[in-house]
Amino acid sequence: MDAQDYFELTQLYARYASALDAADWDAWPEFFLDACIYKLQPRENHERGFPLATLSFESKGMLKDRVYGIRETLFHDPYYQRHVVGAPLVHQVDADGRIHAEANYAVFRTRLSRESTVFNVGRSIDEVVRTPQGLKFASRLVVYDSEMIPNSLIYPI
Score class of each variant (00 low, 15 high):
H100S: 06
D96G: 01
T54W: 14
G86F: 01
V93T: 12
W25R: 10
V84P: 00
I99D: 00
F119I: 10
F50D: 11
I70K: 06
H83A: 10
T110D: 02
V118S: 05
P42I: 14
Q81F: 07
H76E: 05
S116F: 10
F50R: 12
T117H: 13
E47T: 09
E47D: 14
A19E: 02
Y6R: 10
L63I: 10
A101G: 02
A35K: 14
V118E: 03
V107D: 00
R43H: 14
S18G: 05
R111H: 15
C36S: 11
C36E: 04
L63K: 03
A106S: 08
F75P: 00
G97H: 02
V121Q: 05
E115G: 15
L55Q: 02
Y79T: 03
V121D: 01
T73L: 12
F108W: 13
A106H: 02
Q41M: 12
L63V: 09
F57N: 00
P29K: 11
F31M: 03
V93L: 06
G61S: 13
S116H: 08
S113V: 12
I70P: 04
V84N: 01
D77Y: 05
D34C: 02
F7V: 12
L74R: 07
H83P: 06
I37S: 09
G69A: 11
I37M: 10
E44Y: 09
A87Y: 13
F108H: 14
E102R: 12
N120D: 13
L9F: 04
T110S: 14
